[in-house]
């Protein structure tokens, strides 16, 4: 096993048991889990999603990116002997002994239609489209349910008082998995509220980035045409090299080095 593996290889490796099959003899640790009430023995190092596939389930929905970004694989589980109802992304969480699991295909939500360009940037816009946010009882259930560890209640509260910036900042990492909405006693669809907050803030409140503007202008002028052409002409090996180089420059830059 090479020491420096890039992320894609790691994922591919982790998925081997499902993609290539696995010999039970090679498995050291097994976990006993319950999928929709039925008990299964699965290799203990699998994610919930892989474990379900191992057990014979086939995902025709509730699965997208397999990398923790798309929010499609919402899972609810309870551990044997615990009263707490937990949430997770099936592609990101390892199985554990005694998990009672259920996949959520979808959490129904109503999304109002609004025009980002025409909607005035004023506090009460939130209430106009999402009046139900006024029903929030501050129970914090949404925050507890969020697999992204966001302060969901806090952004709902910020929406109630028309604070676009706070909504956008607090909800930035939302993957729209719908867990919060499913658990909310006030029947709020938090992720639609925060999406509205983010697009409105992005358009009207976010301070203009001068550097970005410059780059956009240059792009329009065609200054990067040659670079793009070069990139598109690379073969697999060359593009891997180019990607590594770009990542290295980025890491240096983020560390505070020169561009």
């Amino acid at each position: 096993m090479a020491k420096e593996k890039n992320i894609m290889e790691k994922i591919a490796h982790a998925n081997q048991s499902v993609t290539k099959g696995i010999d039970p003899k090679d498995v050291k640790h097994w976990a006993k889990i319950y999928i929709m009430g039925k008990v299964y023995e699965v290799p203990a190092d699998l994610t919930i999603m892989q474990a379900m596939e191992y057990a014979g389930y086939r995902f025709i929905h509730s699965c997208g990116c397999r990398a923790g970004f798309c929010g499609a694989c919402s899972t609810i589980y309870r551990m044997k002997g615990e009263y707490k109802l937990q949430t997770a992304m099936a592609c990101q969480t390892r199985v554990e002994c005694g998990m009672y699991l259920v996949q959520l295909p979808f959490s129904p939500a109503e999304k109002p239609i609004y025009s980002v360009t025409k909607e005035p940037y004023e506090g009460n816009s939130f209430l106009k489209y999402f009046p139900e946010i006024a029903r929030c009882v501050s129970c914090n259930t949404c925050t507890k349910a969020c697999p992204q560890d966001l302060e969901v209640m806090d952004y709902v509260q910020a929406a109630l008082r028309g604070d676009f910036q706070r909504v956008a900042e607090l909800s930035f990492d939302c993957i729209q998995c719908g867990m919060c909405a499913l658990r909310c006693p006030a029947e709020i669809v938090q992720y639609n509220v925060s999406q509205f907050g983010r697009v409105m803030y992005g358009r009207n409140g976010f301070p203009e980035n001068k550097a970005l503007k410059k780059v956009v202008k240059a792009t329009e002028k065609g200054e990067y045409k040659k670079d793009f052409k070069n990139l598109l002409g690379l073969n697999m090996k060359q593009s891997k090299e180019a990607y590594k180089k770009q990542q290295a420059t980025k890491a240096k830059f983020l560390k505070g080095g020169k561009k």
Binding site: E122, N124, K128, P131, E132, R161
Partner: peptide, 26 residues
């Protein structure tokens, strides 16, 4: 039913009015 309240009213009403109406009427 909050949908009975016109868009114009929703823009006008202060938060306290909407929060309390929800608490009393829903």
């Amino acid at each position: 039913d909050i949908r009975d309240i016109s868009e114009k009213e929703m823009r006008r009403l202060p938060q306290i009015a909407i929060v309390s109406a929800f608490r009393k009427f829903t």
